[in-house]
Amino acid sequence: MADSAPADAPHGGPADPPTPPVPAPSIPPAASPYEAIRAVPVRHYGRWVAAVVVVAVLVWLVYAFSQGDVIWNTVGNELFAHTVLTGVWHTVLISVVSMALGLVLGVLFAVMRLSKNPVTGAVAWLYIWFFRGTPVYVQLLMWFNLSLIFPVINLMPLYKNNTVDLMTPFLVALLGLGLNEGAYMAEIVRAGIQSVDEGQTEAAHALGMTGARTMRRIVLPQAMRVIIPPTGNEFINMLKTSSLVSAVQYAELLRAASDIGSSTTAIMEMFFVAAIWYLVLTSVFSVGQFYLERRYARGSLRTLPLTPWQKVTANLSSLRRPKVAVR
Protein backbone atom coordinates (compact mmCIF):
# COMPACT_ATOMS: atom_id res chain seq x y z
CA MET A 1 0.00 0.00 0.00
CA ALA A 2 1.18 3.52 -0.78
CA ASP A 3 0.18 4.96 2.65
CA SER A 4 2.01 2.39 4.78
CA ALA A 5 5.45 3.25 6.17
CA PRO A 6 8.28 1.03 5.06
CA ALA A 7 9.40 -1.53 7.59
CA ASP A 8 13.05 -0.74 7.03
CA ALA A 9 14.90 2.39 6.09
CA PRO A 10 15.89 2.77 2.47
CA HIS A 11 19.01 0.99 1.42
CA GLY A 12 21.99 3.07 2.42
CA GLY A 13 19.85 5.69 4.29
CA PRO A 14 20.18 6.58 7.98
CA ALA A 15 18.12 4.60 10.50
CA ASP A 16 15.66 6.33 12.84
CA PRO A 17 17.05 6.87 16.39
CA PRO A 18 15.53 4.69 19.17
CA THR A 19 12.83 6.25 21.27
CA PRO A 20 14.12 6.94 24.85
CA PRO A 21 12.14 5.15 27.63
CA VAL A 22 9.72 7.26 29.58
CA PRO A 23 10.64 7.25 33.30
CA ALA A 24 7.97 6.00 35.65
CA PRO A 25 6.43 8.62 37.89
CA SER A 26 7.98 8.62 41.35
CA ILE A 27 5.58 7.69 44.13
CA PRO A 28 6.32 9.32 47.48
CA PRO A 29 6.69 6.78 50.31
CA ALA A 30 3.74 6.48 52.56
CA ALA A 31 4.15 8.02 55.95
CA SER A 32 4.84 5.49 58.71
CA PRO A 33 1.85 5.17 61.03
CA TYR A 34 4.20 4.35 63.96
CA GLU A 35 6.28 6.79 65.98
CA ALA A 36 10.01 6.29 66.58
CA ILE A 37 10.74 4.24 69.70
CA ARG A 38 13.72 5.02 71.86
CA ALA A 39 15.38 1.76 72.91
CA VAL A 40 17.00 2.16 76.31
CA PRO A 41 19.53 -0.56 77.23
CA VAL A 42 18.47 -2.82 80.09
CA ARG A 43 20.15 -1.89 83.32
CA HIS A 44 21.99 -4.83 84.86
CA TYR A 45 21.85 -4.07 88.55
CA GLY A 46 23.41 -7.43 89.38
CA ARG A 47 26.68 -6.32 87.78
CA TRP A 48 26.85 -3.25 89.98
CA VAL A 49 26.10 -5.33 93.07
CA ALA A 50 28.84 -7.80 92.13
CA ALA A 51 31.30 -4.94 91.54
CA VAL A 52 30.50 -3.44 94.96
CA VAL A 53 30.98 -6.82 96.65
CA VAL A 54 34.34 -7.39 94.93
CA VAL A 55 35.59 -3.91 95.85
CA ALA A 56 34.47 -4.44 99.44
CA VAL A 57 36.38 -7.74 99.64
CA LEU A 58 39.52 -6.10 98.22
CA VAL A 59 39.27 -3.25 100.74
CA TRP A 60 38.85 -5.80 103.52
CA LEU A 61 41.95 -7.73 102.37
CA VAL A 62 44.02 -4.53 102.22
CA TYR A 63 42.84 -3.57 105.70
CA ALA A 64 43.62 -7.07 107.04
CA PHE A 65 47.18 -6.95 105.68
CA SER A 66 47.65 -3.44 107.01
CA GLN A 67 46.89 -4.72 110.51
CA GLY A 68 49.68 -7.30 110.34
CA ASP A 69 53.05 -6.76 111.95
CA VAL A 70 54.79 -6.10 108.66
CA ILE A 71 57.52 -3.49 108.32
CA TRP A 72 56.57 -2.13 104.90
CA ASN A 73 59.51 0.28 104.88
CA THR A 74 61.82 -2.74 104.81
CA VAL A 75 59.96 -4.07 101.77
CA GLY A 76 60.46 -0.78 99.94
CA ASN A 77 64.10 -0.42 100.98
CA GLU A 78 65.11 -3.96 100.03
CA LEU A 79 63.14 -4.10 96.78
CA PHE A 80 66.08 -2.76 94.76
CA ALA A 81 68.91 -4.06 96.91
CA HIS A 82 71.96 -5.25 95.00
CA THR A 83 71.63 -8.83 96.26
CA VAL A 84 67.96 -8.94 95.26
CA LEU A 85 68.63 -7.52 91.79
CA THR A 86 71.40 -10.09 91.32
CA GLY A 87 68.93 -12.81 92.27
CA VAL A 88 66.41 -11.43 89.76
CA TRP A 89 69.05 -11.57 87.03
CA HIS A 90 69.98 -15.14 87.96
CA THR A 91 66.31 -16.14 87.89
CA VAL A 92 65.82 -14.70 84.41
CA LEU A 93 69.09 -16.26 83.21
CA ILE A 94 68.40 -19.79 84.44
CA SER A 95 64.80 -19.61 83.19
CA VAL A 96 65.75 -18.47 79.67
CA VAL A 97 68.66 -20.93 79.30
CA SER A 98 66.65 -23.84 80.70
CA MET A 99 63.73 -23.00 78.42
CA ALA A 100 66.05 -22.87 75.41
CA LEU A 101 67.48 -26.28 76.33
CA GLY A 102 63.98 -27.66 76.87
CA LEU A 103 62.79 -26.33 73.52
CA VAL A 104 65.71 -27.90 71.64
CA LEU A 105 65.20 -31.22 73.42
CA GLY A 106 61.46 -30.98 72.89
CA VAL A 107 61.79 -30.62 69.12
CA LEU A 108 64.37 -33.41 69.00
CA PHE A 109 62.39 -35.95 71.02
CA ALA A 110 59.08 -35.00 69.39
CA VAL A 111 60.56 -35.80 65.97
CA MET A 112 62.09 -38.99 67.38
CA ARG A 113 58.76 -40.10 68.80
CA LEU A 114 56.98 -39.45 65.52
CA SER A 115 59.65 -41.35 63.63
CA LYS A 116 58.85 -44.74 62.15
CA ASN A 117 62.08 -46.07 63.65
CA PRO A 118 61.02 -48.18 66.67
CA VAL A 119 64.33 -47.61 68.50
CA THR A 120 64.23 -43.81 68.41
CA GLY A 121 60.52 -43.86 69.20
CA ALA A 122 61.07 -46.05 72.26
CA VAL A 123 63.98 -43.93 73.53
CA ALA A 124 61.89 -40.76 73.17
CA TRP A 125 58.99 -42.37 75.00
CA LEU A 126 61.22 -43.48 77.88
CA TYR A 127 62.72 -39.99 78.20
CA ILE A 128 59.29 -38.35 78.33
CA TRP A 129 57.95 -41.02 80.69
CA PHE A 130 60.75 -40.58 83.23
CA PHE A 131 61.10 -36.80 83.32
CA ARG A 132 57.36 -36.17 83.30
CA GLY A 133 56.69 -38.84 85.89
CA THR A 134 59.10 -37.61 88.59
CA PRO A 135 58.98 -34.24 90.39
CA VAL A 136 61.44 -31.61 89.25
CA TYR A 137 62.52 -31.12 92.88
CA VAL A 138 63.57 -34.77 93.09
CA GLN A 139 65.47 -34.45 89.82
CA LEU A 140 67.34 -31.39 91.13
CA LEU A 141 68.38 -33.26 94.26
CA MET A 142 69.52 -36.25 92.20
CA TRP A 143 71.77 -34.08 90.04
CA PHE A 144 73.04 -32.22 93.11
CA ASN A 145 74.06 -35.46 94.85
CA LEU A 146 75.37 -37.19 91.74
CA SER A 147 78.88 -37.35 93.25
CA LEU A 148 77.66 -39.88 95.82
CA ILE A 149 77.44 -42.57 93.14
CA PHE A 150 79.78 -41.13 90.50
CA PRO A 151 82.80 -39.53 92.24
CA VAL A 152 84.48 -39.01 88.86
CA ILE A 153 82.95 -38.24 85.48
CA ASN A 154 85.04 -40.35 83.13
CA LEU A 155 84.24 -39.98 79.44
CA MET A 156 87.64 -40.97 78.15
CA PRO A 157 89.19 -39.91 75.91
CA LEU A 158 86.90 -36.85 75.70
CA TYR A 159 86.51 -35.67 79.29
CA LYS A 160 87.46 -36.63 82.85
CA ASN A 161 86.89 -34.60 86.00
CA ASN A 162 85.68 -34.82 89.58
CA THR A 163 81.90 -34.71 89.79
CA VAL A 164 81.98 -32.14 92.61
CA ASP A 165 83.97 -29.75 90.46
CA LEU A 166 81.78 -30.33 87.41
CA MET A 167 78.34 -30.13 88.98
CA THR A 168 78.22 -26.46 89.89
CA PRO A 169 74.92 -25.01 91.19
CA PHE A 170 74.25 -23.42 87.80
CA LEU A 171 74.82 -26.67 85.91
CA VAL A 172 72.67 -28.60 88.40
CA ALA A 173 69.86 -26.08 88.00
CA LEU A 174 70.21 -26.15 84.21
CA LEU A 175 70.08 -29.94 84.00
CA GLY A 176 67.24 -30.23 86.47
CA LEU A 177 65.02 -27.59 84.87
CA GLY A 178 66.07 -28.06 81.23
CA LEU A 179 65.72 -31.83 81.04
CA ASN A 180 62.39 -31.73 82.84
CA GLU A 181 61.11 -28.99 80.54
CA GLY A 182 62.28 -30.92 77.49
CA ALA A 183 59.86 -33.74 78.30
CA TYR A 184 56.89 -31.36 78.44
CA MET A 185 57.99 -29.46 75.33
CA ALA A 186 58.30 -32.75 73.43
CA GLU A 187 54.59 -33.38 73.91
CA ILE A 188 53.71 -29.78 73.00
CA VAL A 189 55.79 -29.89 69.82
CA ARG A 190 54.39 -33.31 68.92
CA ALA A 191 50.85 -31.96 69.20
CA GLY A 192 51.78 -28.97 67.06
CA ILE A 193 53.34 -31.15 64.35
CA GLN A 194 50.33 -33.45 64.26
CA SER A 195 48.02 -30.44 63.87
CA VAL A 196 49.49 -29.75 60.40
CA ASP A 197 47.56 -31.47 57.64
CA GLU A 198 49.34 -34.50 56.18
CA GLY A 199 48.70 -33.17 52.69
CA GLN A 200 51.35 -30.51 53.34
CA THR A 201 53.98 -33.19 53.88
CA GLU A 202 52.80 -35.21 50.88
CA ALA A 203 52.95 -32.14 48.65
CA ALA A 204 56.47 -31.32 49.85
CA HIS A 205 57.62 -34.89 49.16
CA ALA A 206 56.02 -34.71 45.71
CA LEU A 207 58.18 -31.66 45.01
CA GLY A 208 61.28 -33.66 45.90
CA MET A 209 61.94 -32.20 49.37
CA THR A 210 63.63 -34.44 51.91
CA GLY A 211 62.00 -35.33 55.22
CA ALA A 212 64.30 -33.07 57.26
CA ARG A 213 63.77 -30.12 54.92
CA THR A 214 60.02 -30.69 54.90
CA MET A 215 59.99 -30.64 58.68
CA ARG A 216 62.13 -27.49 58.84
CA ARG A 217 60.56 -25.47 56.01
CA ILE A 218 56.94 -26.68 55.84
CA VAL A 219 55.71 -28.41 59.00
CA LEU A 220 57.35 -26.55 61.88
CA PRO A 221 56.50 -23.01 60.63
CA GLN A 222 52.81 -23.99 60.44
CA ALA A 223 52.94 -25.82 63.77
CA MET A 224 54.23 -22.71 65.55
CA ARG A 225 50.70 -21.33 65.76
CA VAL A 226 49.79 -24.29 67.97
CA ILE A 227 53.14 -24.52 69.78
CA ILE A 228 53.55 -20.87 70.85
CA PRO A 229 50.64 -20.48 73.35
CA PRO A 230 51.50 -23.49 75.58
CA THR A 231 55.22 -22.69 75.24
CA GLY A 232 54.57 -19.23 76.65
CA ASN A 233 52.67 -20.77 79.54
CA GLU A 234 55.53 -23.18 80.16
CA PHE A 235 58.01 -20.31 80.32
CA ILE A 236 55.85 -18.41 82.81
CA ASN A 237 55.72 -21.60 84.87
CA MET A 238 59.49 -21.94 84.51
CA LEU A 239 60.00 -18.53 86.11
CA LYS A 240 58.13 -19.71 89.19
CA THR A 241 59.59 -23.22 89.21
CA SER A 242 63.09 -21.73 89.22
CA SER A 243 62.55 -20.94 92.90
CA LEU A 244 63.18 -24.64 93.59
CA VAL A 245 66.84 -24.34 92.58
CA SER A 246 67.50 -22.52 95.85
CA ALA A 247 67.69 -26.04 97.33
CA VAL A 248 70.84 -26.72 95.26
CA GLN A 249 72.62 -23.55 96.41
CA TYR A 250 71.94 -21.53 93.25
CA ALA A 251 71.68 -17.82 94.16
CA GLU A 252 68.41 -16.98 92.42
CA LEU A 253 65.71 -14.56 93.62
CA LEU A 254 64.22 -16.66 96.43
CA ARG A 255 67.67 -17.65 97.69
CA ALA A 256 68.82 -14.03 97.75
CA ALA A 257 65.67 -12.88 99.55
CA SER A 258 65.93 -15.72 102.09
CA ASP A 259 69.57 -14.89 102.85
CA ILE A 260 68.71 -11.25 103.52
CA GLY A 261 65.72 -12.28 105.62
CA SER A 262 67.80 -14.64 107.74
CA SER A 263 70.46 -12.00 108.43
CA THR A 264 68.02 -9.16 109.17
CA THR A 265 65.18 -11.23 110.77
CA ALA A 266 62.82 -9.60 108.22
CA ILE A 267 61.76 -12.98 106.89
CA MET A 268 58.19 -12.18 105.83
CA GLU A 269 59.19 -8.80 104.44
CA MET A 270 61.74 -10.45 102.14
CA PHE A 271 59.16 -13.00 101.04
CA PHE A 272 56.98 -10.06 100.03
CA VAL A 273 59.93 -8.65 98.07
CA ALA A 274 60.40 -11.94 96.23
CA ALA A 275 56.67 -12.18 95.51
CA ILE A 276 56.62 -8.66 94.05
CA TRP A 277 59.52 -9.42 91.73
CA TYR A 278 57.95 -12.71 90.61
CA LEU A 279 54.74 -10.83 89.78
CA VAL A 280 56.71 -8.23 87.81
CA LEU A 281 58.61 -10.87 85.82
CA THR A 282 55.56 -12.97 85.00
CA SER A 283 53.58 -9.86 84.01
CA VAL A 284 56.29 -8.60 81.65
CA PHE A 285 56.73 -11.97 79.96
CA SER A 286 52.95 -12.46 79.77
CA VAL A 287 52.69 -9.26 77.71
CA GLY A 288 55.45 -10.54 75.43
CA GLN A 289 53.64 -13.86 75.10
CA PHE A 290 50.42 -12.05 74.10
CA TYR A 291 52.06 -10.14 71.26
CA LEU A 292 53.93 -13.24 70.09
CA GLU A 293 50.68 -15.22 69.93
CA ARG A 294 49.03 -12.29 68.14
CA ARG A 295 51.78 -12.29 65.53
CA TYR A 296 51.46 -16.00 64.78
CA ALA A 297 47.66 -15.71 64.68
CA ARG A 298 47.90 -13.66 61.48
CA GLY A 299 46.51 -15.59 58.55
CA SER A 300 44.48 -17.97 60.70
CA LEU A 301 42.02 -15.49 62.25
CA ARG A 302 39.78 -13.03 60.45
CA THR A 303 40.38 -10.40 63.11
CA LEU A 304 43.35 -10.30 65.46
CA PRO A 305 42.73 -10.21 69.24
CA LEU A 306 42.49 -6.76 70.75
CA THR A 307 45.56 -5.38 72.46
CA PRO A 308 45.25 -4.43 76.17
CA TRP A 309 44.96 -0.74 75.27
CA GLN A 310 42.29 -1.49 72.66
CA LYS A 311 40.32 -3.47 75.25
CA VAL A 312 40.46 -0.54 77.68
CA THR A 313 39.24 1.94 75.07
CA ALA A 314 36.49 -0.47 73.97
CA ASN A 315 35.28 -0.89 77.56
CA LEU A 316 35.30 2.87 78.11
CA SER A 317 33.35 3.48 74.92
CA SER A 318 30.77 0.85 75.92
CA LEU A 319 30.09 2.78 79.13
CA ARG A 320 29.15 5.81 77.03
CA ARG A 321 26.92 3.84 74.68
CA PRO A 322 24.38 6.18 72.97
CA LYS A 323 20.67 5.45 72.95
CA VAL A 324 19.45 3.79 69.74
CA ALA A 325 16.27 4.86 68.02
CA VAL A 326 14.21 1.97 66.62
CA ARG A 327 11.36 2.43 64.22
Rank of each mutant, 00 (worst) to 15 (best):
N315W: 13
L279T: 02
L85D: 03
R327K: 09
G46T: 01
V22P: 03
A51D: 06
N145A: 02
I260K: 01
W60H: 11
Q310G: 08
S32Y: 13
Y184L: 15
R298E: 10
A275K: 05
L174E: 01
L244R: 02
S246K: 00
P17W: 09
P169S: 09
A203M: 03
G208R: 03
T264Y: 12
A191M: 10
V284G: 04
A50K: 08
G232N: 01
R113A: 06
V70D: 01
F109K: 07
D197Y: 08
H90T: 06
T264C: 05
W129F: 10
V97Q: 03
Y45G: 11
L281H: 08
A274W: 10
Y250N: 01
A15C: 04
F272M: 15
T91I: 13
E187Y: 15
I71N: 13
S243A: 07
N315A: 13
G68F: 14
P151I: 08
M238C: 13
T83K: 10
S195K: 02
G299R: 05
V287Q: 12
P221W: 00
L166G: 02
I227Y: 12
T313Y: 06
V53Y: 08
V62M: 12
F150D: 00
V22T: 15
H90A: 09
Y184C: 10
V40K: 11
G288W: 09
V324G: 01
P41I: 06
P23I: 08
L174S: 02
W125H: 05
V104R: 03
A64E: 12
W60Q: 05
L254A: 10
E269W: 06
E78P: 04
I276W: 07
A24C: 01
G299S: 08
S262Q: 14
G288M: 15
G121S: 14
W89M: 07
N117I: 11
V138E: 11
V55I: 15
I218W: 05
L174K: 08
N237I: 13
F150T: 06
E234T: 12
H44M: 15
T282L: 13
F144R: 02
E252I: 11
L174R: 04
